[in-house]
Write a protein that binds this DNA or RNA. Structure first.
Length: 938
RNA sequence: GGGCGAUUAGCUCAGUGGGAGAGCGCUUCCUUCACACGGAAGAGGUCGUAGGUUCAAUCCCUACAUCGCCUACCA
């Protein structure tokens, strides 16, 4: 078997991925053996491409999936993407804008066709990228939130909630994005500290002299004011309560009301109330039964209610004009700089507008209670646990979820309205439904019409279809009865009219994402996948979508299936740049995972991410680390290359660990291997990926390569075939298990080593993960003794700068038979590793007067250095060591002199410390002896 | 305003109620037949500050400082 001098990832990665996919390696095992283990991927946006967050997220899931697969579980890792309603629609609308096409002109159906076309062409780029990373997803089960089955699940849940009264329409202020032209949920608003201005405006009393001055950051909204509020206890304003004000610019009369929510300290202590354009004011207005006056349009312009002077102005232009006009009237008292936080649309960063609309809401309180209980009762574990408080805090404070969006790309709400039916008050519903056209509709008589009520438009001769196709906005008041249905309605169930209107809105993308853990498995049907894989085992995600997604999945899972959607939630860190900054396109500090894969290979990149993934802290990504792990792979590669040279000496039938253990070096490394495997299994089970990765790293590099490989070289280089066989068998035994343990982290190189180099017949993906290997504590003890001796000698060589090519004599006085045996057993190794010409051992070895010295627990060794080096260096070295030992002696002495310590500390601790003290004291004596000797001959 | 987390070697970070750890970087030596993407040996830290609990604190508690993050209706 030929093997290259260094590892080249680019040559093998694609090959193995194709092999795995072709062979169906990532599908759950068909023999139905093994406990199920399932993960659904957090569906990335279909518009997205792989970033570091995805890479970490996918790596963690893949490590878990591959590990469990090797442990014999029936593993399903289900991949897919979500349709990202607003984001995707924005992308396609921008495309259309280049051709000057408005989606309304195109029509809903045709627009959605275009989006599907776009998706077919550009969407799902991320899927390909996940494959580059090595993700072992079952692609045959890939899902998309707009798939038929998932759409059915969405509709089913909507209807269910509707029927239970948990899905309702309501009129209230929501966060509105005037650019995306849709409602947003509370979570979709990003607040940002902004330098604004606080304007002090004089509001004159209508019924006499005097005025109130109010402070506002948004003067343009004054056009919608319907009151001024002061605190009831505010002495300054007590006399104003109940009086009327003539609202400047508008001329309306508005009352002064008393409300405890007013902060007397802020501004002037008098606050203008704009119920339709401010969340606080909305609440105040409801308490005082104040009228709501909407002065804006859906796209952020002033409407006719704002007055003829301002109607049609953009909200920022209007602000300027209002301020100007107030100045002219001398009603602008003053203005000053003011820092405050302003909400922006998380998709397009436009300043959001609190806007009074009718939307669909999910009544969340009862569902949230269940979701809190599930975590409290530990039916769901959040890992790290620290996130629980965050979760509880948010869930207890939760408000009803606004789920309707005024866009087209998504799951259209399964609700219809009949214009021909009457409301319970007896009004014809068609008279209440209001249409606004995206462009004037030309009637036969040449007149153009911009909109109107449904009934009115029909009377003017427009057809039902024309009305529906021309509408940009349809306002359907709450009195109009919603007809909710699992199947598409073509006629009104009560009056039979075929001319019914469908609710134009679609559902929040997160609504469908909330069903992801079960809708992807085929729910609401009781499919075999649902039975086998639900609830899923673990969800792996970042904390940034804990509320957006995780909390909602828990709520919907419990609500729809009666079960938790997953048992564990592993919440990983955010990947930052090397300086700790959040990666963002605008900062230009994003690291592209694919670039990392190109440069270092997917395995090194993945291993880095796993090694970085300590719980509870953000990750600072550094390329140097990735490079380091590439070196690590190269190390393993070369160790393998070395070993392959001894393949021919292996036994025909690979021996068991017990047979190998006859040799102490073997039993030692097997024991270390066993500890390593335990560490890896335990740490992976506890989601401590960094610990698991470090454990393997350390074992391979520092125990297997640095020690074992070097220890057995004398045998491999020798002529004794039997000895060669003993160590060659062990080398391969360890290598195979090491490769297996690395596989979840480094799938590509391990498969290459497994199949091509170790010439295994089947893929490593389903090979058994090492666990419960035998331990040999006695061998560990004995080898530690030998390794200490080697280190002691090397330390002298290093510190005294004895040339490596120079062979030395070692006079080693063993303090007990055990030590003598251990050294004799490993004589060849000790000689080789210390470049020693003459190794004298025994209880009574003679010692040369001018010698360097080392002390271990069980031996005192002397290296004659006369002629090798000047004595001063050794005297200095020993002096330094003596100082260290004395420091330690002082530490333990102080402890052991303390009666409270002897009285209160556990016996084993006291004993341990006493033993250490005595050992140090002996060591100190030996060093002192030698120092004196050296000084005498100096 | 509320909450959470961090503070350990030059850098990035693990970690534990009983003599401080890793990786990288640094210093010295070595192109010895797996690997210079390497080997060997070193240097380097009153574990943020001040108190407290304990026989014993880097670890537990309290306060403070600095830096992050999340959250909130500062009009």
């Amino acid at each position: 078997m030929e093997i290259g001098k260094s590892y080249s990832p680019e040559e093998i990665e694609d090959k193995w991925y194709e092999f795995w996919e072709r062979e169906g390696m990532f599908q759950p095992r068909q023999d139905m053996q093994g406990e199920p283990f399932s993960i659904v991927i957090p569906p990335p946006n279909v518009t997205g491409s792989l970033h570091m967050g995805h890479a970490l997220n996918a790596t963690v899931q893949d490590v878990l999936s591959r590990w469990k697969r090797m442990l014999g579980y029936r593993v399903l890792w289900l991949p897919g993407t979500d349709h990202a309603g607003i984001a995707t629609q924005n992308v396609v609308e921008r495309e259309l804008a280049k051709e000057s096409i408005d989606r309304h002109r195109l029509g809903r159906e045709e627009f959605i066709n275009r989006v599907w076309q776009w998706k077919a062409e550009y969407g799902g780029k991320i899927i390909h990228q996940l494959k580059k990373l090595g993700a072992s997803c079952d692609w045959s089960r890939e899902r998309f939130t707009l798939d038929e089955g998932l759409s059915q699940a969405v509709r089913d849940v909507f209807v269910r909630l509707f029927e239970e009264g948990l899905m309702y329409r309501d009129s209230r202020l929501i966060n509105w994005c005037p650019r995306c032209h849709t409602a947003l949920s509370d979570l979709e608003v990003e607040y940002e500290e902004t330098d604004g201005r606080l304007y002090y405006i004089i509001y004159p009393l209508a019924d006499g002299p005097g005025a109130l001055t109010v402070a506002t950051t948004r003067p343009e909204t004054m056009l919608g004011d319907t009151a001024v509020a002061v605190h009831p206890e505010d002495a300054r304003y007590k006399n104003y309560i109940g009086r009327m004000i003539r609202l400047p610019l508008a001329g309306r009369l508005i009352p002064v009301v008393a409300d405890e929510s007013v902060d007397m300290q802020f501004g002037t202590g008098a606050v203008k109330i704009t119920p339709s354009h401010d969340f606080n004011d909305e609440a105040t207005a409801r308490r005082h039964n104040l009228p709501f006056l909407n002065v804006m349009t859906e796209d952020g312009h002033m409407n006719s209610e704002a007055g003829a002077v301002y109607a049609g102005l953009d909200r920022t232009a209007c602000r300027r004009k209002v301020v100007e006009d107030l100045k002219l009237l001398e009603l602008l008292d003053s203005e000053k700089k003011h820092k405050h936080s302003v909400g922006h649309c998380y998709r397009c960063k436009t300043v959001i507008e609190p806007f009074d609309t009718i939307q669909w809401y999910v009544k969340i309180e009862s569902i949230a209670k269940e979701a809190i209980a599930a975590v409290q009762e530990k039916r769901i574990h959040l890992i790290p646990e620290g996130w629980e408080n965050n979760y509880f805090g948010w869930m207890r404070d939760i408000r009803d979820w606004c789920v309707s969006r005024q866009i087209w790309w998504g799951h259209q709400i399964p609700v219809w309205y009949c214009p021909d039916c009457a409301t319970s008050e007896g009004h014809l519903q068609g008279e209440l439904i209001e249409h606004i056209f995206f462009e004037p509709f030309g009637l036969r008589d040449g007149l153009e019409i911009a909109g109107g009520t449904y009934a009115e438009l029909r009377r003017k001769g427009m057809s039902h279809a024309d009305i529906a196709a021309s509408s940009k906005i349809i306002r359907i008041p709450r009195q109009v009865k919603p007809l909710c249905s699992r199947t598409d309605l073509t006629a009104c169930p009560s009056c039979g009219s075929g001319q019914i209107l469908r609710d134009p809105d679609v559902l929040d993308t997160w609504f469908s994402s909330a069903l992801w853990p079960f809708s992807t498995l085929g729910w609401p049907d009781e499919t075999p996948d649902v039975k086998a894989f639900y609830p899923t085992s673990v969800l792996v995600t970042g904390f940034d979508i804990l509320f957006f997604w995780v909390a909602r999945m828990i709520m919907m899972g419990l609500k729809c299936t009666g079960e938790v959607p997953f048992r564990d939630v592993y919440i990983h860190a955010l990947v930052r740049d090397a300086k700790g900054q959040k990666m963002s396109k605008s900062k230009g500090n994003v690291v592209d995972p694919l670039t990392m894969i190109d440069r270092f290979g997917a395995d090194a990149f993945r291993f880095s991410l796993a090694a970085f993934a300590a719980q509870g802290r953000d990750i600072r990504f550094s390329e140097e680390r990735v490079e380091g792990y590439r070196h690590f792979i190269n190390k393993l590669w070369n160790a393998t290359r070395f070993m392959v040279g001894y393949t021919e000496f292996r036994s025909v039938v690979a021996p068991s660990a017990a047979e190998l253990a006859a040799d102490t070096r073997n039993s030692w490394i097997l024991s270390r291997l066993s500890h390593c495997a335990d560490d890896v299994n335990r740490n992976l089970g506890a989601y401590r990926f960094n610990e698991a990765a470090n454990s393997i790293y350390h074992f391979i590099w520092h125990e297997f390569c640095d020690w074992y490989l070097e220890l057995v070289k004398p045998d491999l280089y020798g002529d004794d075939a039997a000895k060669k066989r003993v160590v060659a068998d062990c080398l391969f035994f360890v290598l195979e298990r090491v490769v297996l343990m690395l596989h979840p982290f480094m799938p590509f190189v391990t498969e290459e080593l497994w199949q091509r180099v170790l010439e295994k017949k089947k893929s490593i993906t389903h090979a058994a993960f090492p666990c419960d290997l035998p331990c040999y504590p006695e061998a560990e003890r004995r080898m530690t003794l030998v390794l200490d001796i080697i280190s002691g000698i090397r330390s002298i060589r290093g510190e005294l700068n004895i040339n490596p090519s120079l062979e030395i004599t070692v006079q080693m006085k063993t303090l007990n038979d055990d030590a003598l045996e251990a050294v004799e057993e490993n004589r060849a190794s000790v000689i080789k590793l210390t470049r020693c010409r003459d190794l004298q051992t025994g209880r009574n070895v003679s010692r040369t007067k001018g010698s360097a010295m080392f002390v271990t627990d069980s031996v005192v060794g002397y290296i004659p250095i006369e002629g090798l080096l000047d004595l001063d260096a050794e005297i200095a070295r020993l002096g330094k060591e003596k100082a260290k030992v004395e420091e330690a002696i002082a530490f333990f002495n102080k402890k052991l002199m303390n009666e409270d310590f002897l009285k209160s500390a556990p016996k084993n601790i006291v004993e341990k410390d006493r033993a250490k003290f005595e050992e140090l004291a002996r060591k100190n004596d030996k060093i002192a002896d030698n120092l004196n000797l050296l000084k005498t001959i100096q």
